[in-house]
Nucleic acid binder design. Structure first.
Lengths: 157, 157
DNA sequence: TTTCCTGCAAAAGCTTTGCAAGTAC
DNA sequence: GTACTTGCAAAGCTTTTGCAGGAAA
């Protein structure tokens, strides 16, 4: 994966101080390649390595990561629940499973999707709504009764 | 608009008892054709006609409406803050404005968008993620610096 | 040595719930 | 009459914040 020097460099590039807690949390978050943890899930995972870690620090850290572009915050979906955090910051679509999980669509597929939106429809959205479209967010809601099991490898992202 | 008999009938069809509060709240919600109110905004609007109305009732009512298919609760992946409620239950895309509002894309435009998703990409989403796609949810994030001002009429929805 | 981060606890914001009284059916 | 709804207050859940001590630059 990433050694500690690389993470320090990554943090520096994003204007973040390095701390033991941030290092740990970034590693945990980065290990969630397809699924996306909540703050509490991240805390539970990280506490095995740092029992003193506090939930407030997890939230503060995720806020700092999100601000600086190291992750993205995915707000509550369908069933109201806690926010989830996504280590992938590039534009990509999500799949929402019936059991409340959020999964990434592989980058390449997401790209093809975005490119498939006809230019003229986009133009009409901008014209009729009086806006400029910054980006498009898409979620595939999985049919209840199918259990998602991504067959993609992490590398595909 | 809709007279009281029609609303009673609508409620009955959806298995809901008619109450003064529900009547009022449905009217308020239905008057928000392009924008989507939060529970609190709805309360404020409705209190001019029923000062005794309570926030808990607004939430309970919106829950009942959502359950029975009379409105939809919007918990977008991108938005933060309180939930918003949408009287339009058909599938349609949304525009998220920089100031946190959520606006409907006209039905016809939404439909064209959905139809523009290539069949083969949808198939590959289902195959690679191991799901069946129930529906697709889309949001256009408006560029900060543009202020949305829909030029569509309510009738267009 | 200055500035930022952490952990704790407390507060804040949003939503749900228990209950007694009232209303729809 | 029965079952459901209302309004109130209180609790619940998620997230943020104030502060004192500690660590990074």
């Amino acid at each position: 994966m990433m050694d500690i020097g690389q993470v320090r460099e990554l943090f520096r590039r994003h204007g973040l101080r390095w701390t033991r807690q941030r290092e740990l949390l970034y590693a945990e978050l980065a290990s969630c390649v397809l699924d996306h943890p909540t703050a509490e899930e991240l805390l539970n995972a990280a506490r095995s390595k740092d029992p003193g870690l506090s939930l407030a620090t997890v939230y503060n850290t995720l806020e700092a990561f999100s601000e600086s572009g190291l992750c993205r915050r995915l707000s509550s979906v369908e069933a109201s629940g806690p926010c989830r955090f996504d280590v992938h910051t590039h534009d990509h679509a999500h799949v929402l499973t019936p059991d409340g999980r959020v999964m990434d669509l592989p980058r390449e597929l997401s790209q093809r999707l975005m490119e498939a939106i006809p230019r003229d429809i986009l133009d009409e959205v901008e014209r009729s709504m009086g806006i400029h479209v910054d980006r498009v967010s898409m979620q595939f809601i999985a049919h209840p009764g199918t259990h998602a099991s991504a067959r993609v490898e992490a590398a595909a992202l």
